[in-house]
């Protein structure tokens, strides 16, 4: 394996270890006693106390020395045993996550890819055309400055309330249930559009600004000026600049995925969309620590996987990295 990928993998593995350790340490370090408050909440539920106590011995193992607790925690991570949810008692946390993660991927994946492509194209245009630049840049800055949840509020207000084209809550209507029928798919897409559009809009601004700056920079370089003196068309110069400018944008994608996922959490709250973010907030508000820990680890794992994916893509489009891959420098 190339040096490039090896180095990245080491970082991701360490990050994952740290994330698990944070997950392990935070409930034990924080003031207050979350376990006592959990137990007291469960004492009213039939059979709840026994099940919970079993859970607690499994996950917290408070009677054992700390390193043994830590090892057991790792064991539960590798067996996907995150305990049992309190809000949706007695569903295992892993089942809830499995159900929720579909909605995250359905919204995030297309939104990230499309906004990246469209934003880069638009940015390249405003980078080469002064008039377009002056007209569009304030708009892009505005998009990039919006908090995700606020943009969600605006989108809901205009498309859901004023025009009324789209439903504004949930992932599908109350009359349909998940199944592979046209009816359900249409309903799902109808509900899916606004959360997707919100995520798309906010990211669009950032990509456009980034590409515009890259093109401006490339335009001042010698090869662009030389092409200009040769009478090359604006389009040709832009295309060459674009190819150079796209590399930092791919790196930027890796850097931003974490923030985008964070934004998605708040957007799901506005749309009441049953993805991981909504689950995490429900868990926090109801002090469902098992669910919260499970969702946190899932989000970290997803972000790391996405980063790794971007690294591999980068390897294919940047000849310099490809070289280091084959020559093993």
């Amino acid at each position: 394996m190339g040096k490039y990928l090896r180095k990245k993998l080491i970082i991701y593995i360490i990050t994952f270890i740290i994330a698990v350790t944070i997950n392990f340490a935070i409930p034990r370090m924080m003031p207050g006693d979350p376990i006592q408050s959990l137990l007291s909440r469960f004492s009213g539920m039939e059979g709840g106390r026994e099940i919970l106590e079993e859970q607690l011995t499994l996950l917290f193992n408070l009677d054992q020395p700390i390193w043994e607790q830590y090892l057991n925690f790792w064991k539960s991570v590798f067996t996907f045993d995150f305990g049992i949810s309190i809000i949706q008692f007695p569903t295992p946390v892993f089942d809830i996550i499995k159900r929720a993660v579909v909605y995250d991927l359905a919204v995030l994946f297309p939104a990230i890819i499309l906004s990246w492509i469209v934003g880069n194209k638009l940015g390249a245009y405003s980078g080469t055309d002064k008039k377009v630049d002056n007209a569009s840049m304030p708009f892009f800055y505005f998009l990039a400055s919006s908090p995700y949840f606020w943009m969600a509020g605006i989108v809901v207000f205009f498309f859901g309330v004023v025009i009324g084209w789209f439903p504004i809550s949930g992932a599908y209507g109350s009359t349909t249930s998940p199944a592979f029928t046209w009816n359900f798919i249409a309903d799902f897409l109808h509900h899916w559009f606004l959360p997707f559009f919100t995520m798309f809009l906010v990211q669009l601004g950032g990509w456009a600004i980034g590409m515009r700056n890259m093109i401006m920079y490339e335009k001042s370089s010698n090869y662009s000026k030389y092409m200009e003196t040769l009478g090359a068309s604006k389009k040709l110069i832009r295309n060459y600049g674009f190819r150079n400018g796209v590399l930092p944008q791919v790196t930027g994608l890796a850097l931003r995925i974490g923030r985008i996922v964070g934004g998605a959490i708040t957007v799901q709250v506005v749309f009441n969309y049953p993805g991981l973010g909504r689950m995490m907030l429900d868990a926090v508000q109801n002090q469902d620590y098992f669910l919260m820990q499970g969702v946190f680890l899932t989000i970290v794992t997803m972000v790391l996987a996405a980063n790794f994916l971007v690294d591999i893509v980068y390897m294919f489009i940047d000849p310099r990295v490809r070289l280091s891959f084959t020559e093993e420098v």
Binding site: I11, Y12, T15, I18, A19, I22, A254, I257, G258, R259, V261, G262, G263, I265, T266, M280, L281, V284, M292, V295, F296, I299, V300, V303, L304, N307
Partner: peptide, 9 residues
């Protein structure tokens, strides 16, 4: 690479 908001939550 650590997802900021999730960690903050």
């Amino acid at each position: 690479v650590m997802p900021q908001l999730a960690l903050l939550i």
